[in-house]
Amino acid sequence: MITYKTNEEVALMQISALLVSDTLAEIAKVLKPGMPTIEIDRIANEFILDNGAVPSFYKYNGFPYHIITSVNDVVVHGFPGKYELRDGDIISVDVGTIKNGFHGDHAYTFIIGEVSPEILKLVKTTKESLFVGIKEAVAGKRLGDIGYAIQAHNENEGYGVVKDFVGHGLGRSMHEDPQVPNYGKRGSGMLLKENLVLAIEPMINLGKKEVFIEKDGWTVRTKDGTPSVHFEHDVCVKKGEALILSDYAPIELAEKQNSNLNTSYY
């Protein structure tokens, strides 16, 4: 069932989305080589609780951590743990919050230190494709227009567009209808109407699109072992231009000020 939000509900959702943005900015301030990913989980959980919200992911369908940390060939749903970040890693951090009864949910990929030009290009292209997709999230377009735009932008560079995991509607539940694939046919799918809130999230592999799930039942990796990048925004469909509820500006500011992080692809 599709749930359209009132303007008042959209405003509440923006509060939750911006708290996710601020949480990711806090993480961006402290990421460095040698940091165990479980420490990122602790920092995020503490910040979310201090701001009057609770983490969306904790115990969601049994997920045992507060946030998701996906390193290198992990596409999504990576467990925080003892792994210590290294120079040359990329890490996608996915955060969800519940505040005022509504969820915020988005993700950002960080580069630790120096990486190859091909990794820089993958991060840049994936991030670009998110905004290419968001441009299609306007009233009167079709759901397939979003996926087509994301798919074309990445496949033009030879990247694998993950099809097994997709974006989704967002609201009082973290996963609402409709599903929002990162692939599709232009002009296909449901008609987009005002105040539909979507989590648009390209998951793009340097190599092939195929993935597999680890024995833990959660961690998703690329089948060919190549790196994967994940960016996500919370977006409200409007006439003429989509309203992005989350905000990368504070994340990017913190990222640029942290000498351990590589922003040379900007």
Results as ranks from 00 to 15, higher is better:
125 T>H: 08
91 I>G: 03
179 Q>Y: 14
7 N>E: 10
44 A>T: 14
236 C>D: 09
245 L>P: 03
131 F>G: 11
88 G>N: 02
243 L>Q: 06
8 E>Q: 03
194 E>V: 05
12 L>G: 07
264 S>A: 10
145 D>K: 03
105 D>V: 04
84 E>F: 14
126 T>Y: 10
250 P>C: 13
151 Q>S: 06
207 G>N: 14
179 Q>D: 06
104 G>A: 06
178 P>T: 03
204 I>N: 02
82 K>Y: 02
163 K>T: 12
38 I>H: 10
237 V>S: 00
1 M>G: 14
39 E>C: 11
19 L>V: 06
262 N>I: 03
195 N>Y: 05
256 K>R: 15
117 P>M: 05
119 I>V: 14
111 I>A: 06
121 K>C: 07
9 E>N: 04
247 D>W: 14
240 G>Y: 05
160 G>C: 08
122 L>P: 04
201 E>S: 12
246 S>C: 04
171 G>R: 06
266 Y>F: 12
161 V>E: 08
76 V>H: 02
218 W>L: 13
239 K>L: 12
258 N>E: 03
9 E>Y: 02
184 G>H: 06
180 V>R: 02
217 G>R: 04
41 D>N: 11
36 P>M: 07
169 G>S: 02
221 R>L: 13
100 N>M: 14
128 E>L: 15
220 V>A: 09
244 I>A: 11
73 D>V: 10
12 L>R: 15
146 I>W: 08
198 L>E: 03
85 L>S: 00
108 Y>N: 05
19 L>C: 13
2 I>L: 07
262 N>P: 05
236 C>V: 01
6 T>R: 09
251 I>L: 06
122 L>N: 03
114 E>Q: 15
127 K>S: 07
59 K>Q: 15
186 R>D: 00
64 P>D: 11
194 E>D: 13
251 I>R: 05
5 K>A: 01
115 V>K: 07
216 D>N: 08
155 E>Y: 11
227 P>G: 04
113 G>S: 07
126 T>G: 12
215 K>H: 02
112 I>L: 08
51 N>C: 09
115 V>H: 13
9 E>V: 05
87 D>L: 13
169 G>P: 01
49 L>S: 02
153 H>Y: 02
129 S>M: 14
54 V>A: 10
189 G>I: 08
1 M>E: 12
144 G>L: 03
182 N>Y: 00
135 K>E: 13
146 I>K: 00
245 L>R: 07
238 K>I: 04
117 P>I: 02
35 M>E: 08
254 A>H: 08
257 Q>R: 13
236 C>L: 01
221 R>Q: 03
119 I>G: 10
192 L>M: 11
218 W>P: 09
260 N>L: 01
157 E>P: 07
137 A>H: 02
124 K>Q: 06
155 E>S: 09
118 E>Q: 12
14 Q>Y: 00
246 S>D: 14
196 L>D: 00
